[in-house]
Design a protein around this nucleic acid. Structure first.
Length: 419
RNA sequence: GCCCUGGUAGGGUAAAGGUUAUCCUGAAGCCCUGUGGAGGCUUCGAUAUGAGUUCGAUUCUCGUCCUGGGCCCCA
């Protein structure tokens, strides 16, 4: 007999674990709904070109892609921002702005699995489309922090701003490839390589000095950081916007975070604010949330529309989410062969109020009780000939062993109150 | 793609180059056709996989697959 194994980097979620996952998922859903976000669902697979357009050829190595029978090049989605923006371009361009969207879906990446990293993983994320204002940035960050907090997790927030960094970068070069490379080096904090590279391209000394000063500015006191940045870049509208956003965060009650102009992104559709949230207890994969503002829509053939969003690594959150599943009250109906049908009828009635099961193993009375015990039922309802005759049923509390004689109406009362 | 680690029933384990691979737990059934948790009995269930060495491999060697962890990457 061949035994089939699940593909590498995928997981089976059994009921106990699923209950906890759904518990957190539902909590997240409730929160984003309260913030006015509507759910979007896009296909599990998209054209490969969509992801190449967003992230470049370099991502092919990490993408699951294939040719279908119609010779279309398709890819399992590695992330959800591109599909969401594609859907916007296709179907939502004339919607009233801003558009607030959220998603909770699985994504696929061909990577070496490790702690907090799987080949099939779930992302919970939001996108705001149509606002490039600091208020949208602030809302997005505040929402992300609210979600993390609702999971009982301490999240460490870092905020950067690429518009300010780019302003300085533009003085060094006009070539986007060169900019990309510099941004990557900054992001990885490989300052030696950065020095060498800047020297190699013969960058202007003053501009390089400004850049290096700017990206080294970071700290927990936002106002101080901004003052420092101002001393490098001078009066800059982008910096004013950033300052404005920081002030709004205060209104949202977000006060603990780090501002870091050394946060960078290699891809040039990122426009301004970028943020990351980290958590303890995750080994190498500490980042649980990443977000930022970007202009992806023009790249996908849409208008010049700005957006901002974030993605939460749901599986990573689950690794450190400590709550257990909520146990529902359960009732087992115990009957005899002669009374089985009446037992089914009563079970149907009780199911309006409480989780109820009946025997489907043809077990005898004692075995049914044993099963109720080992499956952790809270109550057992005994439906035997004596009970049917009197129309009074025996409800046994499995924890205390107490038994009550109740009519059908009293049973309903009993469990209806339980909710 | 690279490095380290491990892999014996569903879970946890023991042992050994040589008859039928140990024990606990679990599941199913019976003891027990109207009162559970205990106990007894029965049954089910494993050496990840391929090759090599050997008279003989589950044990030794190598490859593959997979787990866990790290590097790279992280759109």
């Amino acid at each position: 007999m061949t035994k089939f194994e699940k593909p590498r980097g995928t997981r089976d979620f059994l009921p106990e674990e699923m209950a906890v996952r759904r518990k957190l998922e539902n909590r997240f859903r409730e929160i984003v709904k309260r913030w006015g976000y509507g759910e979007i669902m896009t296909p599990v697979f998209e054209s490969l070109d969509l992801f190449k357009a967003k992230s470049g050829e370099g991502i092919l190595g990490e993408i699951y892609y294939f040719e279908d029978k119609g010779e279309r090049e398709l890819a399992l989605r590695p992330e959800l921002t591109a599909p969401t923006m594609r859907a916007f371009v296709n179907e939502m361009q004339s919607f009233t702005k801003p558009i607030r969207l959220f998603y909770f879906e699985n994504c696929f990446r061909y990577e070496r699995p490790q702690k907090g990293r799987f080949r099939e993983f779930w992302q919970f994320g939001t996108e705001i489309i149509g606002s490039d204002k600091p208020a949208a940035d602030a809302e997005s960050i505040a929402l992300a922090m609210n979600l993390i907090k609702s999971a009982g997790i301490k999240g460490y927030l870092s905020i950067g701003n690429l518009a300010v960094v780019r302003h300085v970068l533009n003085k060094i070069t006009d070539e986007s490839e060169v900019k990309d490379k510099i941004m990557r080096l900054i992001d990885k904090k490989e300052f030696e390589s950065l020095d060498n590279y800047l020297e190699e391209i013969g960058a202007d000394f003053n501009s390089v000095s400004d850049l290096k000063r700017l990206i080294s500015i970071s700290g927990n006191d936002a106002k101080e950081v901004i003052t420092n940045a101002k001393s490098v870049v001078g009066d800059l509208p982008e910096l004013d916007s950033f300052k404005n956003m920081i002030e709004l965060l205060e209104a949202y009650g977000i006060s603990e975070y780090r501002v870091d102009f050394g946060i960078a992104r290699g891809l040039d559709y990122y426009t301004g604010v970028v943020f990351e949230i980290y958590a303890d207890g995750l080994g190498a994969q500490k980042q649980i949330c990443g977000g930022g503002s970007y202009k992806l829509i023009p790249l996908f053939g849409g208008g010049d529309v700005a957006s901002i969003g974030f993605g939460i690594g749901f599986d990573r959150i689950m690794e450190i989410f400590t709550e257990k599943q909520d146990k529902d009250t359960t009732v087992n109906v115990i009957s005899m062969p002669e009374t089985y049908k009446e037992g089914i009828r009563l079970a149907l009635v009780l199911r309006h109020y409480v989780c109820t099961t009946a025997d489907i193993m043809n077990r005898n009375f004692g075995a049914q009780l044993k099963y109720a015990n080992s499956s952790n039922a809270d109550y057992v309802l005994i439906v035997g000939e004596k009970e049917i005759e009197k129309e009074i049923y025996s409800l046994k509390d499995m924890k205390t062993g107490e038994q009550k004689e109740l009519t059908e109406y009293e049973l309903i009362q009993f469990f209806a109150e339980d909710d």
